[in-house]
Design a protein around this nucleic acid. Structure first.
Length: 262
DNA sequence: CAGGATGTTGGGTC
DNA sequence: CGACCCAACATCCT
C-alpha cells in the first residue's frame, strides 16, 4: 500500500526503533527481495555499524549507517516494517531481518514487488533509485507548475511519474485531483494557473492530512473513503463517483466536480 | 475461476 | 527523445 504518507510512517518507525542501534547480524528468510546484493553482502557492510537518521525521498526510504553504507528500501505495493524487541512473532511475509542490539527490525512484503538495495556511499543512491523529481511534500508551486507545463500527456499520468514529482501514488493522485476539481485525463499542459495552484494546494493538503496518519485516510469526507464501497457517492456533492482506467490505473473521480472540459 | 490490488520496469509502438 | 500501452513480477482476496 505504500505511497509517500505510508513511507513517511515507516521512516518514523525506523527512526524510533533502529536509529543509533548497532547491527548484530542480517538474515533473509526470503533473499528474493535483495536487489543487487546478498545477505552476505549486507552483513559484511552493516555488521557492527550503527544506523543513523533515516531519510525519505518520494517512496524511497534511505537508512544510512554512521560511516558510509546506506540501505535503500522500496516497499512496492505490499511492503512494511515490523519490530520485535525479543525476536518472537516472526511472520510468514518477513523477507529481511536486521538483528539489532535491542531487537529485530523486519522488512515484510507479501507480494515482494519492492526490495532492499545496498549503496556503498550516499552518492550511489541515484543509480539505485533512477531519476526522481522533487519530493511531493516540499515541491513548490512554481516547481510543480513548471514540471506539468512541459508534459505532453494527462495530468494523472504526470503526477504518477516519480521522475516528475516523487511520492504520489494512485490514491494520493486521485484524492488531490478530486480536491482540486481537475479531471484526471486533462492534458497537463492545458491547465490554467488557477488549476495549477489548486493542484499544488490540494497535494499539500492531502499530504498534510495523510502523513501524520502514516497512510491515506479512509475518512468518509475523503474520496479515498468511498473508493471501494458499492455505489460510491462524491463526499462533496453526492454525485455518483465515476470509475475507469486512467494512466493505466484504476481511477475514481466526480463527474460533477471534475468535468472533462474545464 | 477470473480479475483486481495503494508500484515499478522493460518491451513494443506511435 | 517523449509518451502510451501492456505484460510481468508474487500473493492474497473478492
Amino acid at each position: 500500500m505504500p505511497e509517500l504518507p505510508d513511507v513517511e510512517g515507516f521512516r518514523r518507525f525506523f527512526a524510533r526503533h533502529a536509529q543509533g542501534r548497532r547491527v548484530i547480524r542480517v538474515t533473509a528468510p526470503d533473499p528474493q527481495v535483495l536487489r543487487g546484493t546478498s545477505v552476505q553482502g549486507l552483513g559484511r557492510a552493516l555488521h557492527g555499524r550503527r544506523f543513523a537518521a533515516p531519510r525519505r525521498h518520494g517512496k524511497w526510504l534511505f537508512a544510512p549507517t554512521d560511516d558510509g553504507p546506506v540501505v535503500a528500501l522500496h516497499f512496492g505495493m505490499s511492503g512494511r516494517l515490523e519490530w520485535s524487541s525479543d525476536g518472537s512473532g516472526r511472520h510468514r511475509h518477513d523477507r529481511l531481518v536486521f538483528v539489532l542490539d535491542t531487537g529485530e527490525l523486519r522488512v515484510s512484503s507479501m507480494r515482494k514487488l519492492g526490495g532492499a538495495w545496498l549503496a556503498r556511499h550516499e552518492r550511489d543512491l541515484a543509480d539505485i533509485t533512477g531519476p526522481l523529481g522533487p519530493d511531493a511534500k516540499t515541491a513548490t508551486r512554481e516547481q510543480l507548475a513548471g514540471l506539468l507545463a512541459e508534459r505532453r500527456g494527462g495530468v494523472k499520468s504526470a503526477l504518477m511519474d516519480q521522475a516528475v514529482v516523487a511520492g504520489p501514488g494512485n490514491l494520493v493522485v486521485d484524492e488531490t485531483l478530486w480536491r482540486a476539481r481537475v479531471h484526471p485525463a486533462r492534458p497537463a499542459a492545458s491547465l490554467s494557473a488557477d488549476e495549477l495552484a489548486a493542484i499544488h494546494r490540494s497535494l499539500r493538503e492531502v499530504l498534510e492530512g495523510a502523513v501524520p496518519r502514516g497512510r491515506v485516510p479512509r475518512d468518509d469526507d475523503w474520496l479515498t473513503g468511498v473508493r471501494d464501497v458499492a455505489d460510491p457517492r462524491c463526499p462533496r456533492c453526492g454525485a455518483a463517483v465515476r470509475s475507469d482506467t486512467v494512466a493505466g490505473r484504476s481511477t475514481r473521480w466526480c463527474p460533477d466536480c471534475q468535468p472533462e472540459t474545464a
